[in-house]
Amino acid sequence: MPQSTLDAFIAPTASRGIVAEQHAMAPGCQSAACVGKEAPAPKGVPRVRVAGTSTVASVIEAAREQHPGARVFLVTLSWRHNHSCGADQVIVGCEARGAALDLRPPPRPKKGEPKEPPPTLGLEELCALINVSEEIADLLQDERAQVVVIDGYPQGRIYARFVACIAARCIKLRGESKRVTLPRATAPADATCKALLARFKKCRSVERLRAAASAYHEEELADRFP
C-alpha cells in the first residue's frame, strides 16, 4: 500500500481513537443536514443495515426511501471501500494503533495455485470491531441517523453482520433497545464470529465484551495461522 494512501486512514479522530472519518455529502441528498429540519425514523424502520461491496448502493437507497430526511452514515470495515455511495458521511474503522481495517476476501489465486484461506482475526482487529460497534450505538442516539455497515465481501455476510450484532448488543446494554429499531439479527457466515457472539450474550458491559474477545483470542486464535 503506498504510504500516501495509508496516511489518509491513520487518523484517530473519533472519541475512542479508532475511527477515521471522511465527510462526503451526497449530491442532492435528503438528509436532515440538507433540509435543515428534524427527521426521526418512522416507527418500525430499522436503523442499522448490513451491506457488501455489491449491495451497498441499493441498501443506502433503501434507507433513504424508508427514512426520508435521514442522515446516513456508511461504516466501512475495509479502507479499500470508502466511497460514499450516496451516504452523507463515511466512517472507516481503525485499530487502536491507527491502522485502518481491511476485512475482505483473500486475493484470487493464480492458475494452478491453491485457494488461500481467510486470515485469522487478530486481537487488535477484534477490539477494533467492538469499538466500531460502540461508535454505531453512539451515532444512533440521534433519531435522524441511519447506519449502513459494509465489509470487503460482496454481501457483507461475515464482518458487517458481526458488527451489526455487536452494535445491537451495545444498544441493549445501554437499555435503548425500545428506542432504536433494529433489524432481525442474522448470524454471520463465519464460525469464529458465531462463537464470539455466543460468548458476548453472557456479557453485561462493553468492557466484558472486550475481555471475552481477548480470552477467546488467547484460547482459540492466538496460535492459528494465517
Rank of each mutant, 00 (worst) to 15 (best):
E61R: 14
Q3S: 14
T5L: 14
V72M: 09
S205I: 06
A70R: 13
A63K: 06
P12Q: 01
V19A: 12
V149A: 03
L221I: 03
F9G: 01
R144A: 14
T5V: 15
N82D: 11
E21Y: 04
A14N: 15
L126F: 03
P68G: 05
P40C: 08
K111Y: 09
L103C: 06
P109I: 07
P68E: 01
T181R: 10
S214E: 14
K172Q: 15
A63G: 10
A87M: 00
V132I: 15
R16S: 13
C29W: 03
P114Q: 10
L77N: 06
V45Y: 09
V59Q: 04
N131H: 13
Q89Y: 04
D190C: 12
V147R: 01
T55C: 05
F225H: 11
G98F: 05
K172F: 07
A215E: 06
E143T: 13
G122S: 15
T186K: 14
V149M: 06
A51M: 08
T186H: 09
G175I: 11
P27A: 02
L182P: 04
A191Q: 14
P226H: 00
A8Q: 13
L6M: 08
T13R: 12
A8H: 05
T120V: 12
R64D: 08
R49N: 06
P12L: 01
P109F: 06
E61W: 04
C34G: 00
L173G: 02
A212P: 08
E143K: 12
L196P: 12
Q22F: 15
E61N: 05
Q155E: 15
S133Y: 00
A191V: 13
G17H: 05
V149G: 08
G98M: 04
M1L: 12
C165P: 00
A24V: 04
R210D: 10
P226M: 01
V163H: 02
Q3K: 09
N82L: 06
R224A: 12
W79K: 07
E207Q: 15
A99W: 11
C193L: 11
G28R: 05
E125F: 00
R208A: 15
G44F: 02
Q22E: 10
P40T: 07
K115I: 08
E220G: 01
K111Q: 14
Q3I: 11
A99S: 06
V50D: 03
P105H: 07
L209G: 05
